[in-house]
């Protein structure tokens, strides 16, 4: 296990700044995800950590040792690639043994590791096959085993599940998390899927336009988004902007209450599931989407449309007037985004 510290990492491609001074600490044994829309710099940051890209500024350290100048082959990290990047001419077992052989691990130790990983990841029947003969899920497991075989302190995942179908994705996701706990490594995991990030991580770093917009535990990020971008990217959020006076903001729907200091131009948000039926907010139902356990209801008043989540058994139809409320603890005041 390794503790990674990245300080002020910046990367430039010509005139384009892919990363603009990122600070990140991954505690030993923790699971950190880099989450964000495409082009936010998350994969660039991962490539810097792996050593495929030299940052134009900043410093990387693992367990206190500066590794900024080390080439990828000399770093104590292993990457799981989005495309798996298995060696097509080598069998599954040889793919897994590639790393230990390069790192001159003793022969019997290599064999022990390969056997162990093959068993652990359910690849016993496939050890002699070439990668092309395997399904996507199996190839993903081989990629994982190959990375783990070098017993790295740090495992880097580059959207490893994006090529799998939904059901398999959940399964492999749980396997990765279980392995991380069993084997014990620090994981840096890149994804654009917020559900994946929330389910896996100890810490989520939400990135936007080359900076980390907010980082924290999944719950923190979800319940206490600091900026509009975070609130919007994670889950669904209803946003209002206006004057906050005495902890109250008047909106076309009615007056919303919020535990926050007053201001002239304040942005507040609330989650659809924070709404309670009955109360002094009201609007007309514009659309209804039945989801089973709950119903998504889109309610509008004046120019604003908000989304509410109400219990599935409630019967609402388009054109109804809906009365509801949002408790003050469910309303969050936002800061201006760093990328305004």
């Amino acid at each position: 296990m390794a503790r990674l510290v990245a300080e002020d990492i910046a990367v430039r491609f010509g005139t384009f700044e892919a990363l603009r001074g990122v600070d990140l600490t991954a505690e030993s044994g923790s699971f950190v995800t880099l989450l964000g829309p495409s082009g936010c710099g998350k994969t660039t940051l991962l490539n810097v950590i792996a050593g495929f890209l030299q940052p134009s500024r900043g410093r990387l350290a693992v367990d206190g040792k500066d590794i900024t100048a080390l080439p990828p082959e000399a770093r104590d990290s292993a990457m799981c690639f989005q495309s798996y990047a298995l060696f097509p001419h080598l069998s599954v077992a040889d793919n897994i043994a590639f790393g230990p052989r390069q790192k001159r691990v003793a022969r019997d130790e290599t064999v022990r590791r390969v056997d162990g990983l093959v068993r652990q990841l359910g690849l016993v029947d496939h050890a002699g096959k070439l990668p092309n003969a395997l399904s996507g899920g199996q190839q993903q497991r081989v990629a994982l085993a190959r990375a783990l075989a070098v017993a790295p302190g740090l495992v880097l995942f580059d959207e490893p599940l994006s090529n799998l179908d939904a059901k398999l994705r959940d399964q492999v996701r749980n396997e990765i998390r279980a392995l991380q706990r069993d084997v014990g490594f620090t994981a840096i995991y890149v994804t654009h899927d917020q559900a994946e990030a929330l389910a896996l991580s100890d810490m989520v770093c939400l990135m936007n336009k080359g900076v980390i917009e907010q980082k924290g535990a999944p719950r923190d990020i979800y319940f206490r988004p600091r900026t509009r971008f975070v609130a919007d990217f994670i889950g669904a959020a209803n946003l209002h902007r206006g004057k906050l006076c005495g902890g109250a903001m008047s909106t076309p729907l009615g007056v919303l209450h919020c535990c926050h200091e007053d201001g002239e131009d304040v942005e507040i948000c609330w989650r659809p599931e924070a709404a309670r039926l009955g109360g002094d907010l009201s609007g007309t139902v514009k659309a209804v989407a039945f989801q089973g356990a709950h119903v998504d209801v889109f309610v509008s008043a004046g120019p604003e449309t908000v989304r509410l989540q109400v219990p599935g058994e409630l019967n609402v139809s388009i054109g109804d007037t809906l009365q509801f409320s949002v408790p003050p603890e469910g309303v969050i005041a936002l800061e201006a985004s760093a990328n305004a």
């Binding site: 990047a85 060696f87 790393g99 390069q102």
Partner: peptide, 22 residues
């Protein structure tokens, strides 16, 4: 593919090893 060569490098293969083995 680039990732295949990157993977080899990431697993400790230097320039010559990447040439010979991949």
């Amino acid at each position: 593919p680039d990732p295949v060569l990157n993977a080899a490098q990431d697993l400790g293969a230097g320039k010559f090893a990447r040439f010979r083995k991949i």
